[in-house]
Design a protein around this nucleic acid. Structure first.
Length: 361
DNA sequence: GATAAAATAT
DNA sequence: CATATTTTAT
């Protein structure tokens, strides 16, 4: 359906489309300067352009267009990794599920009790696990608005094109859960829940995608700040802290895995194996000059903006500073009892319905 | 039981 | 805002 509309729209605004394409190409040029930092954007724009062109000129196989840079695959350095095995699961919120064949076994069980709680996850379809429903193509995204026109079109384009091709067809409803609003789940229930630990926010792919997008617009994860990111994401209900936390994780994660886009082919720059990670010569040099001191990890930033964690050499493992063993000092401190508060497993009652906090991500 | 992810605390 | 720590879910 959407595609139809989309199509229709196109015809009626051919001119605008041309302009759009031009604009996109401009964008692409800019983005291409930082392929490493904006892989996703690049991908997005490229796809959009392609789609637009197809729309404009009918199905023309113009693969020619692709001005280079494909290596875009790298994006999402961190989502994809988690393979299905673990099954991230957090779909609800925007109920990703899209992930193609995801679902499977993972769901089922959880869905049961989960379903009831699911205030968010309006999408009934997901509920039924009939896998068959691929329906991946073009899902109507009922986002609560807050979307920019261009954006929408881009995404639409993506879907149409089935961009990802192979691996993650990521289709599906993106709905960033705008409405969701996890805090204070029910109006009905007592609001006095006070203090309740916040319901975990699940960073669905869509959400993360937005996050990345924002990041890109802000010039990388190191320069972006939570607030800015949040604003750019335009996802309502999303808090600064959440973004902050996610950003933190993201940074951590990215520095740890500098993307191994080893095209099998030993590029031009062979990597060194330092400690237990690979680093490029330049980076290594940088490290050397930096003369690390701590006995732990030293991160160096490379010219490209990528971080590489470097473990100080074992050889000179000088101070073996014990990591934080602060956990328990000697029992000297009698007052350290702290919040040992019994876990209150008290529930002798057979019903094991733990986690009163219906959460789950 | 280990670990990743999110929440919360500095 | 950045990091560190703690809690929670897998």
């Amino acid at each position: 359906m959407v595609s139809m509309q989309f199509h229709h729209k196109m015809h009626s605004h051919k001119m605008e489309f041309r302009d759009y394409i031009l604009a996109l190409e401009e964008e692409k040029k800019k983005i291409q300067v930082f392929p490493r930092d904006l892989p996703l954007s690049l991908e997005l724009v490229t796809q959009a352009i392609e789609t637009c062109k197809q729309q404009l000129f009918g199905t023309q196989s113009e693969c020619s267009e692709q001005t280079s840079t494909d290596e875009g695959l790298v994006f999402e350095e961190f989502i994809p990794i988690k393979k299905r095995a673990l099954s991230p699961d957090c779909d609800e919120n925007d109920e990703e599920d899209d992930d193609d064949e995801e679902q499977h076994s993972s769901h089922k069980m959880k869905s049961d009790w989960l379903r009831s709680v699911q205030l968010w996850n309006p999408n009934p379809s997901s509920a039924k696990e009939d896998v068959p429903r691929k329906t991946n193509v073009v899902e109507v995204k009922r986002n609560g608005g807050a979307f920019q026109p261009f954006h929408k079109e881009e995404i639409a384009a993506e879907k149409d094109n089935a961009l990802e091709s192979d691996k993650a067809p990521t289709s599906s409803p993106q709905v960033p859960a705008t409405s969701s609003t996890e805090p204070v789940p029910e109006s009905g229930s007592k609001k006095d829940d006070k203090g309740q630990r916040k319901q975990r926010r699940c960073w669905s792919q869509e959400l993360h995608k937005r996050f990345l997008h924002a990041l890109q617009q802000l010039g990388g994860s190191n320069s972006a700040t939570p607030k800015q990111i949040r604003e750019l994401m335009k996802v309502d209900g999303l808090t600064n802290d959440e973004v902050k936390s996610h950003l933190q994780k993201f940074r951590l994660h990215t520095r740890r895995s500098p993307i191994i886009h080893n095209n099998s082919n030993s590029h031009t720059a062979p990597m060194f194996l330092v400690g237990n990670i690979y680093v490029q010569p330049q980076e290594y040099a940088a490290v050397a000059t930096k003369t690390t001191v701590s006995g732990e990890l030293t991160t160096v930033t490379t010219p490209t903006g990528i971080y590489a964690p470097v473990a100080t050499h074992p050889s000179s493992t000088t101070t073996v500073i014990k990591p934080k063993s602060k956990k328990f000092e000697l029992s000297e401190n009698s007052h350290s009892v702290e919040r040992v508060v019994a876990h209150s497993n008290s529930p002798a009652s057979s019903c094991s319905t733990h986690t009163p906090t219906t959460s789950r991500c």
